[in-house]
Design a protein around this nucleic acid. Structure first.
Ligand SMILES: [Mn+2]
Ligand SMILES: [Mn+2]
Ligand SMILES: [Zn+2]
Ligand SMILES: [Zn+2]
Lengths: 153, 153
DNA sequence: TTGCTATTGCGTCTCATTCTCAATATGAGC
DNA sequence: GCTCATATTGAGAATGAGACGCAATAGCAA
């Protein structure tokens, strides 16, 4: 008896989210559901304004404050990751089958390219062992100009 | 006929700075000299408030606006580098004989450990070649807890 | 010394993010 | 389904880093 399901992925995330809400005595509100839905329906790197705009376009009215608050929960539950794109505001991406990747950012047009490598993880282990640090997270971005922005200069 | 010189390093930097000012039609003001002096008299990672405080302690009154403006010139002239320490504001360090190093930051006490590696540079070259990017700069930090902050938890 | 103009300091502005609080919605227990 | 304690929301104010405008001032070349 299956519904007109969108994707198993979405179902999984919704499950994780419900679990998280349960464990923290948080309520399953319309706003949180809609934000989760929107975040997992796209696969790009977005900021708060973009998310707000997308929700408004769908007539899913959610306040800016609630978006900030919900994103904090999504970060805490590891469903969403924060990304530093060298801008003056935070960007986010959902964390579904996109583990361990880094970013290449074009400083001219803003284009973002993802790449994976084991190098970063190895280096982190090595360095943390040497200095007796317990790693929590890392942040790595390469900023530069993409191919098309180079030719048009 | 040598003066009571503080260090050759300082002299070198002052030279670079004067060159930079000359090339850009900028004046050699008291404020700029004092900021340069203060920045090169310490070897840590500082933010604007800290720099302001240190200058005030020495009765070298410089406004916040001038510090921001001068730091921009110091960045532009490559005498100072900006460092991302995972906080919500910019940190800086002077760039004298401290090329190509990365940072390990304790999220508990704020301690910063520097480390050098050729790995990052190699990786950057490799990735940029693959995606036809022209690299401008990179940012890499490992956030975690230092040894003493681990034991006191 | 003069005069042009780069620079400063102060206050104001912007922009992202957080906070406050009264009104509202959620969900457990009945 | 209804009640009620309380988690949550939205609107707007508050905050904090940093940029900016402008009148007063200081560098510096002539
Ligand atoms: Mn990504
Ligand atoms: Mn450093
Ligand atoms: Zn580009
Ligand atoms: Zn520590």
């Amino acid at each position: 008896m299956r519904r007109n399901s969108k994707s198993t992925a979405e179902t999984v995330e919704r499950g994780h989210f419900n679990d998280y809400l349960g464990r923290h005595n948080l309520r399953r509100t319309q706003e949180r559901i809609r934000i989760l839905q929107e975040v997992f329906s796209t696969h790009d790197h977005f900021d708060v304004e973009t998310l707000l705009f997308r929700l408004r376009r769908k007539k899913h009215l959610v306040s800016r404050a609630t978006i900030y608050r919900t994103l904090k929960h999504l970060l805490d539950s590891k469903l969403v990751r924060q990304v530093d794109l060298g801008r003056n505001r935070a960007f986010y991406e959902h964390a579904l089958g996109r583990e361990n990747h880094e970013h290449l950012v074009c400083v001219a047009c803003g284009k973002v390219v993802e790449f994976s490598t084991v190098t970063i993880q190895k280096l982190q282990n090595f360095v943390c062992e040497e200095f007796n640090f317990r790693p929590v997270r890392h942040s790595y971005q390469i900023l530069g100009t993409c191919e098309s922005c180079q030719s048009s200069s």
